[in-house]
Computed example of a mutant assay.
Amino acid sequence: MTKPKLMGLNHVALEVDDVDAAFEFYGKVFNFQLRGSHRDDSGVLQMAFVDMGDQFLALSRGRTQERHTNRHFGLVVNDRSIVMDLATAAGATVPEGRPFNFLDLWGNHLEIVEYRDIQFQVGRRAQGAGHRRRQDRDRDRDRDGRDAEERNL
Score class of each variant (00 low, 15 high):
His68Gly: 07
Gly130Met: 07
Asp140Thr: 00
Val113Met: 14
Asp17His: 06
Trp106Gln: 06
Asp79Arg: 01
Gly74His: 00
Asn10Ala: 12
Phe32Leu: 05
His131Gln: 13
Ser81Phe: 00
Gln121Ser: 03
Val12Trp: 01
Glu114Gln: 01
Asn31Gly: 13
Arg124His: 13
Asn31Val: 13
Ala148Cys: 15
Ile118His: 01
Val12Cys: 01
Gly130Leu: 01
Arg116Trp: 01
His11Asp: 12
Met1Thr: 11
Asp140Pro: 04
Ala21His: 06
Thr93Asp: 08
Leu153Trp: 14
Phe56Met: 04
Met1Phe: 06
Asp117Met: 04
Leu45Asp: 13
Asp104Cys: 03
Phe100Met: 07
Leu105Met: 04
Leu34Ile: 03
Gly53Lys: 00
Arg80Gln: 11
Met84Cys: 00
Gly97Ser: 03
Leu110Val: 11
Thr88Phe: 09
Gln33Gly: 11
Ala148Gln: 08
Asn152Tyr: 10
Leu103Val: 06
Thr64Ala: 14
Asn31Tyr: 12
Arg134Leu: 09
Met7Gly: 15
Phe49Met: 11
Trp106Arg: 10
His131Met: 14
Thr93Arg: 11
Arg125Pro: 02
Leu105Thr: 03
Phe23Glu: 14
His38Ile: 06
Leu9Thr: 12
Gly27Lys: 00
Leu34Thr: 04
Asp79Thr: 00
Arg71Ala: 15
Glu114His: 09
Val122Ala: 15
Asp136Arg: 12
Ser81Met: 00
Asp51Gly: 07
Asn101Gln: 12
Asn108Thr: 04
Ala89Tyr: 02
Asp138Ala: 10
Val122Glu: 15
His109Asn: 00
Gly130Ile: 06
Phe25Ile: 05
Gly62Asn: 02
Asp79Gln: 05
Tyr26Leu: 09
Met7His: 04
Ala89Lys: 02
Gln119Met: 15
Leu110Cys: 09
Phe73Ser: 07
Ser60Phe: 15
Glu149Met: 13
Gln33Asp: 02
Met47His: 13
Asp54Ser: 08
Asp117Gln: 06
Gly107Met: 03
Thr64Tyr: 14
His109Pro: 15
Tyr26Val: 10
Asp40Ala: 11
Asn152Cys: 08
Leu6Met: 13
Arg146Asn: 14
Arg63His: 13
Leu153Tyr: 09
Ala90Thr: 14
Arg63Phe: 14
Asp144Thr: 10
His109Asp: 10
Tyr26Gly: 01
Arg125Ser: 08
Val113Pro: 14
Asp40Met: 12
His72Lys: 00
Gln127Arg: 05
Val19Trp: 08
Lys28Asp: 01
Thr88Trp: 01
Gly128Leu: 13
Asp142Val: 11
Ala22Asp: 07
Ala58Val: 15
